[in-house]
Design a protein around this nucleic acid. Structure first.
Lengths: 195, 195
DNA sequence: TTTCAAATGTGATGTAGGTCACGCTAGCAC
DNA sequence: GTGCTAGCGTGACCTACATCACATTTGAAA
């Protein structure tokens, strides 16, 4: 039943962008594997071989980097219909340098790198979809890069909450800080000062 | 003659990634328009409609953002075989917020957004190529984002020069600073302090 | 209900890098 | 040649944010 739901969510997401017949979509979908994870559970850890990318059905993931001083920087919060992985490791067949884990209980659909490439090769529409998806991620990351250079923490914080208001309730502030690239103390002082 | 050379450069670049017959490549290439620009000349300016993306044959471009205080932040230096544009505006049919201009005299091949989409639609291999290209840009931008949050200016400067040593001779230091997201004064103090 | 860890607030102090101001040099325009 | 502007160095001072330390709150587990 929830499996049915997952299929519908993915279908909705993909068919908004590209045309697939029902049979084609069924075939596409048959390559995904459903997984459930508990809050706090790791999906990809530093040093792992990375085989899959993950389409979020429910819950919230984070992909993040840990530096030598054990400081965490969050690359992405992944909410339903978002895709997450260590894309660098996935595309280049290197070990993971990015971690992926669960902020809440989560259900995802996994697609392996080789299956994605196979599907892209077999179905032009699927290749089109994945081109679209990466374009979107690329442009969003460029915007974030500029914002990081150009705007102060306060502005970036407000921008983030305007864009993803649901994060405010789901994600603890120390993780928001790790996304914005500041210390949790500085972030805390921000909204105690305003109003 | 240089036109022949441009064609070869593009062919080399594309066929490293994807299979195209000679006729297919000729057809692909027929949609590009060669353009020459002088040092300092603008290709895309803030507020423009953005129709094309640009494949660099020779010279060096920069894409950059100017904020309200007239401070410049450089998104990308584009050397030969790199692609540049305001991809956000291009994909989303909005006005340019990113500028593109020439650090040196430059020759480029222009491809319009509609021709790209047409070609991607007609030739699966072309769609594959563009998916690959954006994947690469996406991953590189994510890395830069992390480096910006995690590393200090000195490290980022050395990292940049290690990756693109040719920039050192071509690009004035104030532009390097604008790429790293620091003031030219700070950058200047860096390498006067070391050794 | 108690307990414990995670999440959060806040003061004191340190620091990387920004800003402003000025001077020098080199190459291009006339 | 003369003048002018872009590029670059450098000192003095300022500021946003980091770091460290400690207190308080909260929510989930036992």
């Amino acid at each position: 039943m929830l499996c049915m739901e997952a299929k519908e969510i993915l279908k909705n997401h993909v068919c908004k962008i590209t045309q697939l017949t029902d049979e084609q979509f069924d075939y596409f979908f048959s390559h995904f594997k459903k997984q459930s994870y508990k809050k706090g559970q790791a999906i990809i850890s530093d040093g792992d071989n990375v085989d899959c990318e993950y389409f979020v059905i429910s819950g919230c993931l984070k992909s993040f980097f840990i530096n030598d001083d054990l400081k965490m920087y969050i690359l992405q919060f992944a909410m339903p219909t978002w895709w997450a992985s260590d894309f660098n490791a996935l595309y280049n067949h290197t070990k993971a340098t990015i971690n992926l884990d669960c902020i809440t209980d989560a259900e995802v659909l996994c697609l392996s790198n080789s299956d994605r490439e196979k599907l892209c090769n077999e179905l032009h529409s699927v290749e089109h979809f994945f081109r679209w998806r990466t374009n979107r991620g690329y442009v969003a990351t460029q915007k974030r890069l500029l914002s990081l250079m150009n705007n102060n923490v306060k502005y970036r914080y407000e921008e983030l909450l305007k864009m993803y208001p649901e994060l405010y309730n789901i994600v603890p502030k120390n993780l928001i800080a790790a996304y914005l690239g500041v210390s949790r103390e500085t972030l805390s002082r921000l909204y105690s000062s305003e109003k």
